[in-house]
């Protein structure tokens, strides 16, 4: 019995040490050739992990900065922002967000999508991944659609059980319209109406198919 207890204690210690140490000894750190940047990233990773943010998105942000030849100062600032946005996304997408949703949520917040919009999306679909919907909303806002209008449209389409293909089609169509010179608000309204004309109203969806499973 004593032996088992000691084993458990040593194992827990090993896991804790390895988890923290691994963040600071990730082999991908060697991809960062600049010593100062590598040290900054190492410290940021260790700190973020201790505060509950996984290594992967933080490391990806660092390597993105390296690929774009950003300074160590810029990379540090970007990693700090990501960590803050990750925590904000975790609150907005509670109670059980996936890492994909958190990544998408942090990206959305970075693009100035409000937390209230994320909360509304989660409320609309509490039992399935909404990473795609968050991505569509983010892209609409990135194309200068006003966040309130964009989130209202995405929520409306979700309520009518729009498919993932329809949602991404909306994003692409608005993108093309804006590039062609149409005002973002008008492009979203036109394209959104077009897709909604193919879908039943929300009340019909809930009445006709009350136990329908969420869209995959």
């Amino acid at each position: 019995m004593i032996f088992i207890r000691r084993c458990a204690a040593v194992a827990a210690l090993a896991v804790a040490v390895a988890t923290t140490a691994s963040a600071q000894q990730d082999s991908r750190l060697t991809l960062i050739r600049d010593d100062a940047t590598r040290e900054v990233v190492r410290q940021q990773l260790g700190g973020a992990l201790s505060r509950g943010v996984p290594v992967e998105p933080m490391m990806a942000k660092a390597l993105e900065g390296v690929a774009k030849r950003a300074s160590s100062k810029s990379i540090k600032a970007a990693m700090t922002r990501l960590e803050e946005n990750w925590h904000r996304a975790a609150k907005a997408l509670a109670p059980n967000p996936t890492d994909d949703e958190l990544s998408a949520g942090a990206d959305a917040l970075q693009q100035n999508v409000p937390e209230s919009a994320l909360r509304a999306l989660r409320k609309q679909a509490p039992g399935r991944s909404i990473a795609l919907e968050i991505g569509v909303l983010t892209q609409l806002v990135a194309r200068n659609v006003e966040p309130g209008q964009a989130s209202k449209m995405v929520l409306e389409l979700m309520a009518r059980k729009a498919t993932g293909t329809q949602l991404t089609a909306l994003s692409s169509a608005v993108q093309e319209d804006v590039e062609a010179g149409l005002a973002p608000a008008m492009a979203l309204d036109l394209r959104g109406r077009g897709i909604m004309s193919l879908l039943p109203p929300p009340s019909a969806v809930s009445t006709l198919n009350p136990r329908s499973t969420p869209r995959p």
């Binding site: 992990l49 996984p54 925590h87 059980n96 967000p97 996936t98 958190l102 399935r128």
Partner: peptide, 10 residues
């Protein structure tokens, strides 16, 4: 992730 994460809807 270390923050609340669920694989139920991955």
């Amino acid at each position: 992730g270390v923050l609340p994460a669920s694989n139920s809807h991955e």
